[in-house]
């Protein structure tokens, strides 16, 4: 029950197969990292899991705590407990961060329940302080006019507020300065617990110095080509992806 288990996942877009029989299991309590060259399908994997309707799943399954999520609507998957921090977060003009997160939380409650405003702001400000986000941001429109780094922090803020069971962070470290990287890593580490599985997608082993992964996977042409411990990231950084290609041919 306590797994996000992906089996033989194949998915395509516009008749182009991107995911080609991918297998991956993320147990609760663990942090896994995926590395892999540009275009290997990392973001595609995260969007397919989140229920993006542009992708056609042609085979396989993705079981979240015993429930098949492939074919479910994005909002239903979200409410089941899957969170995706986007590689490119979108702007929502005119909708403040505070209202956006509040609407998302409200959507998780039963129809007759409402969020306690005082408690909500207390949590929100608490999370913002931890992530070094100025409280003034609560009234700014979601991601509108944010710098790259601010967008990424805002993703982590949402994640912290929604308390998902499984988190996928798609290149959350890209575009962050060193201080921001440390803050974001701290935010993720605080969310590490036995009831939560985390998948970080990254190009840089540096992030993995702050968020120590239990496992590292290498994605290659729509599948997981290699799996190892945290040292695999170091090896990749030293040898580059040509090394993976040679390994695969061998």
């Amino acid at each position: 029950m306590n797994y996000l288990e992906i089996k033989d996942l194949r998915a395509q877009i516009e008749d182009k197969e991107i995911l080609r029989g991918l297998n991956l299991t993320i147990p609760k309590g663990e942090v896994h990292a995926i590395m892999g060259p540009n275009g290997s399908g990392k973001s595609t994997l995260s969007k397919v899991l989140a229920g993006h309707e542009d992708y056609e799943v042609t085979s396989g399954s993705a079981i979240l705590d015993g429930e098949e999520i492939l074919g479910m609507k994005p909002d239903a998957i979200s409410r089941l407990g899957l969170f995706l921090a986007f590689q490119y977060p979108l702007e929502v003009p005119g909708v403040s961060i505070a209202n956006f997160i509040r609407a998302a939380l409200q959507g998780r409650l039963a129809e007759n329940e409402t969020i306690d405003a005082v408690g909500y702001y207390k949590d929100l400000y608490g999370c913002m302080d931890e992530l070094g986000i100025d409280r003034k941001f609560t009234s700014r429109s979601v991601n509108e006019g944010f710098s790259g780094g601010e967008k990424k922090r805002c993703e982590i803020l949402q994640m912290a507020m929604l308390k998902p069971k499984y988190c996928i962070l798609d290149e959350t470290d890209s575009g962050l300065d060193i201080d921001a990287l440390k803050i974001v890593a701290k935010g993720v580490n605080q969310m590490r617990n036995p009831d939560r599985g985390i998948l970080v997608i990254t190009h840089y082993q540096r992030l993995l110095e702050y968020i120590i992964p239990d496992k590292v996977h290498v994605m290659w042409e729509g599948g997981i080509a290699l799996t190892g411990g945290k040292e695999l990231a170091l090896e990749l950084e030293a040898k580059g992806y040509d090394w993976v290609r040679e390994e695969l041919v061998a």
Partner: peptide, 9 residues
């Protein structure tokens, strides 16, 4: 899609 990923219908 982004908004739905946060749980909004």
């Amino acid at each position: 899609f982004y908004m739905r990923q946060r749980g909004l219908t």
